[in-house]
Design a protein around this nucleic acid. Structure first.
Lengths: 128, 128
DNA sequence: ATCGCAGGTATCGAAAGTATACCAGCCTCG
DNA sequence: CGAGGCTGGTATACTTTCGATACCTGCGAT
């Protein structure tokens, strides 16, 4: 009998998993970081700043807006202008994200080093 | 001319992006959280605790080991026993991750609320 | 002898991400 | 005038990743 397994792990893990699945991806984190830094950014400013594809940016911004982290303001000027900014909830998310981003910047070398060593040892075993 | 665009965004974003691409995904975060809590866990303990597929767990653990966050100890007993624990680097990653996890737990209701309201307004517009 | 658990690997379809092209409206430059 | 460029997007096609499931080896218990 092919295991039914509706078990989703411990409840706390499920909940954290759920939130991270919504706002915990790379692009959402980077968008929040950028908006926290610049307060207000237009669509193409974000796009150029992040080096993200238009499609992804469009999707992620709508997601973040839906989840109440980002505010979208459409100015019906010529040419049209759309501005994005963090909401209060977005700024509260910025706090933990900032510490994560800082850790990331500080520890990239450590990770690279560990990775290089791991790969080296793997090579040794392979050629042994 | 179809835009060549090798531009990857601001350097800082690229670097953060890079690290997050390695250890910033949902499962890595949850594995680190679990290991920080229980100190040592076996493969299937983690699997059951997280509700993750074997394949993913296997991949993520190897990744985390490669990146120096997790230590894998193989006990050639009968039956074989494999234990996973955080390294020092792993524990240092736990700090920012903990604040992220806490935020996630605290703010799931807020996100749900924002989302419900957004969807409601979208429905109104649709039927207007 | 068959089942179960241990810790995986192999396979395959679905989902997510990327690259690219295209759109409408207006502006400028030649 | 008309070619192109900027605005903020969609639409399409392709590729990478993810997730569910099945299978494997080796042992021990029923």
């Amino acid at each position: 009998m092919p295991e039914k397994s509706a078990y989703q792990g411990c409840p706390q893990c499920s909940r954290i998993n759920e939130v991270l699945g919504r706002v915990g991806d790379r692009w959402s984190v980077l968008i929040v970081l950028s908006l926290a830094q610049y307060k207000v950014l237009r669509f193409n400013e974000l796009k150029r700043h992040l080096g993200i594809s238009q499609r992804m940016l469009s999707l992620k911004l709508r997601e973040l807006e839906r989840d109440g982290l980002v505010n979208r303001t459409y100015h019906p000027t010529i040419p049209p202008k759309v501005e994005y900014a963090l909401t209060d909830l977005g700024y509260s998310f910025y706090e933990p994200v900032k510490t994560l981003g800082t850790w990331a910047l500080d520890n990239l070398p450590n990770i690279d080093e560990a990775r290089a060593e791991f790969d080296m040892q793997a090579d040794e075993k392979k050629s042994a």
